[in-house]
Design a protein around this nucleic acid. Structure first.
Lengths: 121, 121
DNA sequence: TCTGTCTATTCGGAAAGACAAATATAAGTG
DNA sequence: CACTTATATTTGTCTTTCCGAATAGACAGA
């Protein structure tokens, strides 16, 4: 298994892109936005309500996610609906949570990705 | 597939941990350090040479990675050897590069993770 | 202990990023 | 056009983070 590997000297564009994505996901509110958009699109209003944060704050973070091409928008009348740009981000975030969960549950090293439905409480 | 999912309202500790990890990986030099440590441990001197950065800079970033429990150290005489704390980080970074590569190559959405050996030049 | 090597930490300044109120823009309604 | 709703952007302030020279600490050999 694992015949594939990124060389320790990666393509500069890839390195830049990777860090851009990680930076975009380095704030709790933005990770939460990604989670909320995983599986279903949502309007800004819905996101503001879900996060209970000022509208300008949510909008600003959405703008950042959009400038990183992690989310797309669709206008519908006066409201704007956001959704994930592709499955990449969701997958990445999913995996990160899987790891965090394992750590929290005291598991040493995970043998195979195996998150729990509902997220283990 | 994909019966598992993180709830849009994740465990607070997990959210904190996830953003901590993403933040740790949001700088090019730190991602490069992880790449260099993937598969083999390295001394600080080796890392300094590989990255061609001031020793204090490399050491400072290593310290951050260590405080995030992403790397471990082993002392050997006067030198210190770093290695990844577990397979989580490597996996996450690996996946991020796989995504970046796909994007760079103009592929729309990847159907299944399938990185290229050597990283595609 | 003195010296050289290797690594970690400190420190001051610069740059980047976050916050939220206020303001601007866009679209629909009458 | 006037008005409302929904979203975006501007603005000033504050916090965080980064950089790297300088300094400190740890270890081995003489």
């Amino acid at each position: 298994m694992h015949e594939h590997a990124v060389p320790s000297q990666p393509h500069p564009d890839d390195l830049a892109r990777v860090t851009e994505v990680f930076k975009a996901l380095s704030e709790p509110i933005r990770v939460q936005l990604v989670l909320l958009l995983t599986g279903s699109e949502r309007s800004v209003t819905q996101l503001v309500e879900a996060l209970d944060q000022p509208q300008s704050t949510v909008s600003r973070h959405l703008a950042l996610l959009r400038s990183a091409d992690l989310v797309k928008t669709r206008r519908e009348g006066t409201s704007v609906h956001y959704c994930l740009a592709d499955s990449h981000v969701a997958r990445l975030v999913q995996e990160a949570f899987s790891h965090a969960q394992h750590e929290r549950l005291g598991l040493s090293d995970h043998p195979a990705a195996r998150p729990v439905p509902g997220g283990v409480h």
